[in-house]
Design a protein around this nucleic acid. Sequence first.
RNA 1: GCCGACGUAGCUCAAUCGGCAGAGCAGCGGUUUUGUAAACCGCCGGUUAAGGGUUCGAGUCCCUUCGUCGGCUCCA
Length: 608
Amino acid sequence: MPKQKSNGKNNSQYDDLYKIRHSAAHVMAQAVLERYPEAKIAIGPPIKDGFYYDFDLGRNPDGSPRTFTPEDLEAIEKRMRQIIAGKHRFIKRVISADEARELFKDQPYKLELIEGLEKGGVDEYGEPVEGAVEISTYRQDAFEDLCRGPHVEHTGQIPPDAVKLLHVAGAYWRGDENRPMLQRIYGTAWKNKKQLKAYLNRLEEARKRDHRRLGRELDLFSTNHEMVGGGLILWHPKGALMRHLAEEHAKKMHLEGGYEFVYTPHIGRSVLWETSGHLDFYKENMYSPIEIEGQEYYLKPMNCPFHVQIYKSRVRSYRDLPIRFAEWGTVYRFERSGVLHGLTRVRGFTQDDAHLFCAPEQMPEEIDRVLHFSISLLQDFGFERFQLYLSTRPEKRVGEEEKWDAAETALLEALKRSGHPFDINEGDGAFYGPKIDIYVEDALERPWQLSTIQFDFNLPERFDLTYVGADGAQHRPYMIHRALMGSMERFFGVLIEHFGGIFPVWITPVQVAVIPITHEQNDYAAGVAARLRDAGLRVTMDDSNDRMNAKIRNAQLQKIPYMLVIGGREVEQQTVNVRLRNGRRLGAMSVEEFIVLAREACEKREVI
RNA sequence: GCCGACGUAGCUCAAUCGGCAGAGCAGCGGUUUUGUAAACCGCCGGUUAAGGGUUCGAGUCCCUUCGUCGGCUCCA
């Protein structure tokens, strides 16, 4: 995963919002110090949508860390508005390291930052900077903070009605879980009240689209921590149907793309995982072994060793290559309890996994193919914006330099040819090979990692994979590990949030609700439903005692794309009256006309 | 795992200072037959997450455990 630029200065380095947020953070720190004079202050950068500041409030008499209360937040926010109203100037001062140490002698975290600044090379947030580092402070009112700036001219330029403190969270100093946990206050700040309101609306919109909420409302999936366990997903019929439709499509694409499907077991002997290196490098993410007849078996966290064994089951010739083994492989990985989240972070999941084995000269084309395949598959599901990342060789790595050179070049060239924007994360590759990650941007412009395409120089060596070349000699194949949707669970979480439950017609679990107005029309309506089912549409027939209005409401809440209202007039004219879930009414048409309409929406993968 | 907030019916939420566990929706039974987002009546539904403690009395206060949520860390 690419490192999120935490200070939000990627594009608009020192724009107005940056200054407002950065200044708001200082004002908040002042307010906190006034309330808790003994508090130690850490860092307070602007971030995407706002800012935060980390504090160490010391300990309670009983030794537990002192924390902020909701009342604190209110009082701090109130005091911030007073400071803002004071129109205090932000005054910059460039000082020496010794002066800084004297100024912040009671602030141990600042002293540590000064230490780093003096050494140079990194800024106060620990990010690399070029050239010598100048130590500076900014003061507003009676509060002076170690800071490189920039800030607004005076506190009055922070719009008081566009600032809001959001919540408190624990955060480790310097992001290191072995160091003290600080109290972080998150806030948001904008140029004006309207922007703040729009942001809060966006949060509310995101809340409504939360896949955990929609999963329950649309009856797609559930979890049951008491009886089943955390991070383990129960797919309900409607969710399972959607997954089936998605898999059906993706599997067809894989077959057309030259992949061969394999099935492999969920457990394997310890020697397999010793050989693959998983027990050396991945053990903390694997579950305890199961003992069978004195042998230890491990639940698989990955499918690769099994695919490698299939490769090794016979002598491979260069004529066989490339070999592309694909499997919807269910894997289990231990995740710490605090990180589990709905469908997007789970302990058991099914990857659309595949492993490509090819000769060196075939490698560039394989990369091109898999990159195109991935983007085009994601486009089929309605994703339109992609951000690609190339992760290059890390310091600790296996494999020969020539292989890294060739693989990185192939990945880079393929990225350039793809026409999609990409960034390079130097040194962020796995120890066993470089990789491309594909992020999709959802309807709320949030990035989600789905695809990953990874070289593997490790397993071919460890398992001594070979093929016989045209020269009759043994050669080592290249191996590429790839998952396009990533995992079915995560993919569905993202899909649900992207569409907010308003799915494209082809994949939506119930496409049509047939709604007779009175019992008089039940027979005709049942006939219509049967004809639609014969035409391959997924239909529900609402012959309950509810009024038509209630039937429509229920269909709307289930986000069913088409509602066919049938009253006396429709029976008489042998038609259906079509209402779309967006409220549009298409009026009366024949059943045949409707079938053509709905089929077209499926073929074109329309949302309607 | 760590910090914080929280945990009451399937869902959303009430319950004054520690004093009879309640409502809407959903479900079930009936009545109603209605023209584009909620008809009406009735019934069912609870070990207040679990366990312990304080108290005449605990949903409410205290402790432990589990879980959820927001972050942090992690996501070879």
